[in-house]
């Protein structure tokens, strides 16, 4: 299982339990994933058409703390990924 898959599972948590994760837990999971990346990968950027500046991959954990909409984006993205790729593996 990839580091990304593990991160998603930490965020979405497995199956039957209620899904509550504090921001700190999400940040921790994302930080662990980011730490597995190369410097080049960490320098890639997410760009948005909402007037907000781009975010480098290395800054994802900080952005999750500072920007609630980015946290929600991350959680929803993890759910989409879980439903598409990981649910059947569970």
């Amino acid at each position: 299982m990839s580091a990304y898959d593990e991160m998603v599972l930490k965020i979405v948590q497995k199956g039957k339990k209620p899904l509550f994760l504090a921001t700190a837990k999400i940040v921790e999971a994302v930080q662990q994933y980011v730490d597995t990346l190369s410097e080049e990968e960490k320098d890639r950027e997410l760009v948005r058409f909402g007037g907000n500046p781009p975010i480098k991959v290395r800054d994802f954990p900080r952005a999750i703390v500072e920007d609630k909409s980015f946290q929600e984006f991350w959680v929803r993205k993890s759910i989409a990924y879980y439903n598409e790729f990981l649910r059947e593996k569970e």
Partner: peptide, 10 residues
């Protein structure tokens, strides 16, 4: 309906 986000590799 929300913020459109995409990757860019320069």
């Amino acid at each position: 309906s929300e913020e459109y986000t995409f990757y860019y590799g320069y």
